[in-house]
Computed example of a mutant assay.
Amino acid sequence: MYLLELGGEDDAFAAREAESAATGVRPIAPGLAVARGIAPERVRGLAYTHRASGLLGRTDADLESAQALLEAATLERDDGSIAVRATDVHGATGIDTERAERELGRVLVERGFSVDLDDPDHLLRAVFSAGSVGSTDAESEQDSVCALGWLAAESVRDFGTRAPTDKPFFQPGSMDPLLARAVANVAGARSGATILDPMCGTGGVLVEAGLVGADVIGTDAQEKMAAGARTNLEHFLDAPNLSPTGVDRGSWHVGRGDGTRLPLADDAVDGVVFDAPYGRQSKIETHRLEDLVAGALAEARRVASRAVVVADRSWQDEAQAAGWELEATFERRVHRSLTRYVLVLE
């Protein structure tokens, strides 16, 4: 079993993204989930999961219980050094994390481990969390929990280097790279997969999908946007070295095109992602916007078996009319006047 440390405000959405890198994902407390297995190289590319650790066990969220758990745990000792890092999720338990690190480190020293606080060979994560995860399964829900695990994989937190305003081509309303990476992952972005964005805008989703190894295709009805997306993709995906996530960057192709009439064969791609025009901000008339999104959903259904749609409203009825089944839907509040809906379609 593995412990996943989730990030962001929406654990359900974070857990859904984590399923692209792990099996049997199940939230256990705010900011925490467990998984049966992980793909470490995929964990490195997650947006809303920070770390995955081999789970030693879990107990009540107090230091005495954590010490007892570590004292009783079966540990395999080698010649490597160790360190302990403790976290109190949202500061909800009031645990003194520095003291927790000292006391748990003392337990490990007494069990024969050597400590190296600066550059350890192995890192023990001690994560304390309090609150309900809202599960209907009483056995999977605790008021508070401490989970211990050896760090196995960590996501690459370089999203700030790709802030929309810092890219070579920028337009207002561009999706932030964290959300772009997450929806790309949910759509199936990975090495060997092909991801399409038929309304690619500045190319933010395509950049994030390409950085986790997917080959990407983008179209946009405006030549200005298609040209700008090409500029961004060239900047981020044409480097000869491995991407920060440790995989080969995917190939890319972007051109001007109509998202409702794609020049692609049936089942040509593995997943489709698009950020639908927002009603209040779009200059498109309401009936034309509805026709555009309905047409894009129908074309997405023709060329792929999975899609993720981001929008300022739920297009569930249009998606079902296009032949999609709604696997999941999430609401993500951006600010007082904007809530983003994320629809996962199969």
Rank of each mutant, 00 (worst) to 15 (best):
A15P: 13
G24S: 09
R26W: 11
V34W: 01
A35M: 02
G37A: 07
I38K: 02
E41H: 12
R42L: 12
G45S: 09
L46C: 15
S53R: 12
L55V: 03
R58W: 13
S65T: 01
S65W: 00
E71A: 01
E71H: 00
D79N: 15
S81P: 08
I82H: 08
A83F: 04
A86H: 12
G94I: 11
T97M: 15
A100F: 01
E103V: 14
D119T: 08
L123A: 02
S129P: 07
S132L: 13
V133R: 15
S135I: 10
D143S: 08
F159A: 13
G160H: 05
T161A: 14
R162H: 09
R162M: 13
P168S: 00
S174G: 11
A187D: 10
L196W: 04
L196H: 08
V207S: 02
A209F: 01
G210F: 01
G213S: 03
G213V: 01
G218F: 01
M225E: 04
P244Y: 01
T245E: 10
H253R: 14
H253Y: 06
G257A: 00
G259I: 00
D267Q: 04
Y278M: 10
H287K: 11
E290Q: 14
V293H: 04
A294F: 00
R306L: 05
A311M: 04
A328K: 13
A328E: 13
F330E: 10
E331M: 06
R340P: 15
V342D: 08
V344N: 13
